[in-house]
């Protein structure tokens, strides 16, 4: 009996020894990601830092130009600008939750999902409107009604803007928003394009530039439905988001970033910045130019389609949280934004 008891104490001690570093580790993490040491440097006297998630793709061109030409730094003298590369939208959101990132760029639906789940963040700017589209190689498919039970549609991920747009189109033309949910294949853009071009188990691909242009430039490929048709109007493809924590403490920094993006958009509109983009994307200049000259690719800080996405996603249970009665969707936009 005594031996047995000794053993139990032994295990208890082991348990405590093992748990202790776990607790300390968590505490340590918590302290490290304390915003005071990082972003709100104005108070602590250290150099303040703005951490931006950097992303590639034509829709992010103003971000790329702003980075390449140091526009953000120019607007925010005294700030240190940290550009972070993250794999995808989910990773950006997670980094913002972990207080590892102050601002990130993504589609409206992923923003709404985060907001629905209790993330404290706002949209502070639009970044781009872009042509999206559902591309197929099957000549017999001209509309959503032409898809068979066995036809698979590839898109980046459930809850992505492509998924919501497809659901909107399905509601519009078939009256059933989830009609395609059992026929979806989740693939990121490059893999999705590869799968489409292989013309085997993927019938169609809902994608965005430049993959959309590349696919449409391939023989036999055509667009079944565009993003605008699906939405029934104009919408912003990529928006800029910022955590409340950062925006509340550093409204000037957010405004500075906004101005920098605005300048980048002006440069792009004037046909500038293309060499930097070509170098950044590792593409030939003429190819970049042909993409940039697409009439539907528009860089603007205006945010369009937020109410439509919110309404649709609420109606079909993608999200459950409703905005405050009196604010409406404007409660999702950063109040300090200039536009």
């Amino acid at each position: 009996m005594g031996k047995q008891q000794n053993r139990q104490y032994f295990f208890l001690i082991i348990a405590l020894v093992l748990i202790a570093p776990l607790v300390l580790g968590f505490l340590g993490c918590g302290r490290e990601s304390d915003p005071q040491t990082h972003s709100a440097g104005t108070k602590s006297g250290k150099q303040p830092v703005l951490r931006i998630a950097e992303q590639y793709g034509l829709a992010y061109a103003p971000l790329s130009v702003a980075k390449a030409r140091g526009l953000v730094q120019a607007e925010l003298p005294g700030w240190r600008i940290e550009w972070k590369q993250l794999g995808n939208t989910a990773a950006i959101r997670e980094a913002m939750i972990a207080k590892d990132l102050d601002t990130g760029f993504m589609g409206i639906p992923p923003f709404l999902i985060g907001w629905d789940r209790g993330m404290k963040w706002k949209i502070f700017t639009g970044l781009s409107q872009a042509p999206l589209g559902l591309v197929t190689w099957r000549s017999d498919i001209r509309s959503l009604e032409d898809f068979d039970r066995d036809d698979r549609i590839a898109l980046p991920q459930p809850g992505s803007i492509q998924h919501i747009l497809l659901s909107m189109a399905a509601e519009r033309s078939l009256g059933a928003p989830k009609a395609f949910d059992s026929r979806l294949v989740t693939l990121n853009h490059p893999n999705g394009m590869q799968a489409l071009l292989a013309r085997r188990d993927i019938t169609a691909h809902f994608t965005s530039p430049p993959y959309l242009m590349m696919e449409l430039a391939t023989e036999d490929m055509h667009e079944v439905i565009s993003g605008q048709e699906a939405m029934g109007g104009e919408f912003t493809f990529i928006v800029g988001t910022v955590t409340d924590e950062f925006a509340d403490r550093n409204p000037e920094a957010v405004k500075g970033l906004e101005r920098a993006l605005d300048r980048a958009m002006t440069i792009l509109a004037a046909g500038g910045g293309r060499k930097e983009l070509a170098a950044g994307f590792n593409l030939e200049l003429p190819e970049i130019e042909s993409y940039l000259d697409h009439p539907d690719l528009v860089y603007t800080t205006e945010v369009q389609g937020l109410a439509e996405f919110l309404d649709f996603m609420l109606r079909h249970n993608f999200i459950r949280r409703k905005p405050e009665e009196k604010e409406g969707v404007s409660g999702l936009l950063w109040a300090g934004a200039t536009k």
Binding site: A90, P110, R152, P158, S182, L184
Partner: peptide, 22 residues
Amino acid sequence: VFGAIAGAGGIGWYLYSKRVFM
């Protein structure tokens, strides 16, 4: 990485879909 085909993606897909919907 692969995602689901017709909603069947296995346990990895389950994780991923929980992730994208937070």
